[in-house]
Design a binder for these strands. Structure first.
Lengths: 333, 333
DNA sequence: ACTCCAAACCGAAACGTTTTAACGCAACCT
DNA sequence: AGGTTGCGTTAAAACGTTTCGGTTTGGAGT
């Protein structure tokens, strides 16, 4: 049944010692060409594949990384995950997926699994600002790179996108379009992203000579399309002339709610979202949005993590902050 | 730095043998209550976490499963993955994610990684109908459960949704709405799902006393919104009165294309998609669709896999086929 | 008081790999 | 010829856990 072929059998059959087989696997340059090809031949014949656990146990480090995201159902995180998976796979690393669903305990459980698995490193989009858990990981020798979250300390890597600038871009765009009565539809204030995008809006207002305190904020408990539609109902009584939503799911829901109520977009209300997910462009009144380099976010974060793992001495911690980009479509024209 | 605390240190500190510590970890009922609680206390004090690789090496099996999907960017697979991750996490299993992107070589590479990692089992949505790779896995003692794909042999588990029935439902619905000139917008014919949904359409036509050969099929190379919009352009020259798209991404793109060209939906053309992704309901003209129990699909598949792993003797292989469900919204009313 | 038994625990071997020091050997230099 | 060098290879130890046969212990049964 589980007739797993070990390095020893390969060695015996190739007439070399197990150590040599290990060498052709891990440092091929150390072994003479003739024996190397002979061993490789036998490996193919016997269908040998290295026992990762044995390797990890002895070598002291694995070829897996952990990825903990807040919501795998959100296209934003899906894109990030795609970037991570692609690069990891290219480098022969396995990605262990953890979905925290915004729950602290679930996140905790995932980190425990990562620790048991002795992952080489962890990529995490923290669901809150508590950094003690990450300290614990690091104290176990597990490297951590923050994703979509700025670094909390200089001795760690982080990859994020400037949310203040993004929020500012969105608001400035609406103001330049002549917005007088601006609404910001946000998600939970516990989320750093929502807070920072709001700050961007307030800065934009100030820069335009307006009073930031006049900003009307509608805070929703979730950040999906349904919440967006509910937000629309709240707005119908006192219609603004411009709305900025903290993400595209909210914006799409809001858009639908407004259109159903007979409100014309962008003629009566101009609208902009955030993330520029695929569906933003595909929506009937195409949605303006703030684009983030999501796939790149995941890829670069993985790159940093791998460098930290493979070159612990020369590795320089980096805090990379991408700049978002304004994408104007029909909903705000 | 990597001051990892081992089972031995726990044993020494608790005044027991390593074997006993292992027992409180794996079969707590075998050890006396007093010593058990003492050991557990020490475990907490020292912050011990089991070395998964050592455990796997010795025990001969791991607590990880591999999940290989075709496109992690598609909300359908994302939902499946969420179901898998949830249950696996509840059971203390880790999920290794592999994204094949529809490429055979990428899928191959993922399976190799799974094999190296000595995963307990694999959940896979095969990107084609070649079953030899899966044979190889099984011959290594790795259990395989097919997801969104019917079983090819009786001695394996599989979880799928009846695509023929789904296609038939969609077509019947359109025909009952008075459709005379029906178009099926499909993805690559290499995909089993597309073929079977088409077969369902043809059966529905036959059942309505129409000639299945009269079905107009537009085959697109991809199954995303952009492809849907291109399909719309093809249709504009000779407009049908009803369109069934092989998935919602196609349908949403098509919807946008039609509306932009001034075609009214559903008055001139009624439209239905497949998968019932979240965005189907949120779209401006909300999209009729065929709903599949995606999250359940992932969860049930995982359940079967775990049973196969944990109870290899009593396990009965099952081929579960869910039935899809018609969801009527504005686009086909 | 004695045997006997089960329960509780121990000790050591084993899992498959990596790594290190040691070794053989040929080629090169004095 | 003796000495040195360096390459290619080997043997054996080690990683942290699980498992299993064996040993101790406490108490029930006679």
């Amino acid at each position: 049944m589980a007739e797993t072929v070990s390095i020893k059998e390969v060695a015996a059959r190739a007439g070399v010692s197990p150590g040599t087989v290990s060498n052709v696997l891990n440092r091929p340059e150390k072994v003479a060409g003739s024996t190397r090809s002979r061993v490789e031949q036998v490996i193919r014949e016997l269908g040998f594949v290295r026992h990762g656990s044995a390797s990890t146990l002895r070598a002291g480090h694995s070829r897996t990384i952990g990825l903990s995201v807040i919501d795998i159902g959100n296209p934003f995180f899906t894109d990030v995950a795609a970037g991570v998976e692609d690069l990891a796979s290219e480098r022969g690393y396995a990605v262990i997926l953890g979905n925290s669903s915004g729950s602290r305990s679930k996140e905790e459980r995932n980190l425990l699994v990562f620790a048991e698995q002795r992952v080489r490193g962890v990529l995490i989009t923290p669901s809150d600002d508590d950094s003690r858990r990450l300290e614990r990981l690091r104290s176990r020798g597990i490297n951590v790179v923050l994703v979509d979250h700025p670094a909390e300390r200089p001795d760690q890597c982080a990859v994020s996108v400037n949310d203040v600038v993004g929020g500012s871009m969105a608001a400035t765009h609406l103001l330049e379009g002549g917005a007088e009565r601006l609404v910001y539809v946000a998600g939970p204030a516990a989320m750093r992203q929502c807070r920072e995008r709001r700050e961007g809006v307030e800065r934009a207002l100030a820069a335009a000579g307006r009073d930031p305190a006049e900003l009307r904020v509608v805070e929703m408990p979730a950040m999906n399309a349904k919440a967006g539609q509910q937000a629309a109902e709240q707005l119908l009584g006192d219609l603004p002339d411009a709305v900025f939503c903290a993400n595209d799911l909210l914006a799409l829901g809001l858009l639908r709610g407004l259109l159903q109520a007979g409100v014309r977009v962008p003629e009566q209300v101009s609208l902009i979202g955030y993330d520029d997910i695929d569906f933003a462009a595909a929506s009937t009144v195409s949605l303006s949005s703030i684009r983030q380099p999501t796939y790149q976010l995941g890829r670069v974060a993985t790159e940093l993590l791998m460098d930290e793992c493979d070159n612990p001495d020369t590795h320089a911690h980096q805090q990379i902050m991408f700049q978002p980009e304004l994408v104007v479509r029909e909903s705000s024209r």
